[in-house]
Design a protein around this nucleic acid. Structure first.
Lengths: 215, 215
DNA sequence: TATAGTTTCAAACATACGTTTGAATAAAAC
DNA sequence: GTTTTATTCAAACGTATGTTTGAAACTATA
């Protein structure tokens, strides 16, 4: 079988290099030669290990998807085990805790994967549309469900709206995609320390979610 | 001079086609042949009217940038004329009003431009980095300033954080970039009627912004 | 040490890219 | 009506793309 130490190292080097380049330049903006050069491997190595550029893209996500999903589910499992009907603060805390663990632990990809997700958000490659719902559908259902139970004054549709706002703000914040960064020459807030992001994000989200219904 | 009816029509057809394709496939994912084919013009027309693909990209933004900036500034001008120190609700309302006018008026680009901005957000082409701050720097300063005056219990840094969260949620919402859409096979909330977006967004944002300080 | 399997590599593959050309056509100016 | 200018067009430009090839180098098993 394959899986010699050296071989594994090569495919991992490719994944690492590709992940960073996909964030910076997107899928179409990243060429095979950029990837292999950055990884320090021969250009044929990508097709040898991953079959194609599309296959590499799939593998880049697959490496991160499962651990992050598991983490997120574990956090809401723990929350609901200790608290039958958790309040908004607790649900948001559990959700943010996942992003925080992800952003802090390099073994999970660190902030790199958050950025990749943020990009996939507006740049939906067909490959994602086919694989993301399968693994993250459950995550969304669990958190949106818990949020709904914590916000009985809102309709299901309203809960989904707010979950949408919540995730948008959260992803942008952790990924560091800041309107100030793009629109101003000297942004004041461009810190990206996950702990700092989380502390500033919490009160905003909790208050926003708890707001009275619009209807 | 140029500007014959036919010539203008050609360059406008190119801008329209390119704008849509850039949203769907990004800059690198959109080829000259895709653009000219979709616009129904010869492939050489882009270079004839815009010099290069980069030049076209610049022109696509330039067409929308100025009207939107003017609209946004006009709204805060009006707000501050009628109200020396507006409260949070009024500031957010003025800001959302701009997005709403933009999203509703096809002459301004409609939701198309919002989506383009949302994409530019995570896919920063060098051309944008050079042109956006020049025109939108003032917009950000004005609104962030007004927000700061309406939220005296927050530090300047905190105000910037919340402005970041506010814009992230708003742009995603109006652009329709929904986590539910990407992560679930049957999203509940994928409505994109600007009026509906605005009504759901308002209470969330106002409450989030008004939340007590994190420190 | 010989053999089988795995991984690397330089080179070439066909195709798509953005751009340029120069002639043909249309419009405007005189 | 002729000359100038502006626009369109098919074809080709050189370069970059993702992928494949087949031999070389390496690793493991016997």
């Amino acid at each position: 079988m394959a899986e010699s130490a050296k071989a594994q190292e090569t495919s991992v080097r490719i994944l690492d290099a590709a992940e960073l380049l996909f964030i910076e330049h997107g899928f179409d903006g990243t060429s095979m030669r950029m990837i292999t050069q950055s990884a320090g491997v021969n250009i044929a190595a990508v097709n040898y290990y991953f079959g194609s550029k599309d296959g590499l893209y799939r593998s880049v996500f697959e490496r991160r998807t499962e651990p992050f999903a598991r983490l997120t589910i574990a956090n809401i499992d723990e929350l609901e085990r200790n608290n039958a009907t958790p309040d908004v603060h607790a649900v948001v805390q559990a959700f943010i805790k996942s992003a925080l663990q992800l952003g802090t632990d390099p073994a999970l990809g660190g902030l790199v994967f958050v950025k990749l997700l943020a990009r996939a958000y507006v740049e939906p490659h067909p490959i994602l549309k086919e694989s993301m719902p399968r693994r993250y559908g459950e995550v969304v259902r669990r958190y949106a469900g818990a949020l709904g139970r914590a916000l009985p004054h809102l309709t299901e549709t309203e809960v989904h709206w707010r979950f949408h706002f919540l995730t948008s703000a959260m992803f942008s914040a952790f990924a560091g995609n800041n309107v100030l960064r793009l629109f101003m020459e000297h942004p004041v807030t461009n810190a990206r320390d996950p702990q700092l992001v989380a502390r500033n994000l919490m009160p905003f989200l909790v208050a926003g979610l708890t707001a009275p219904s619009a209807n």
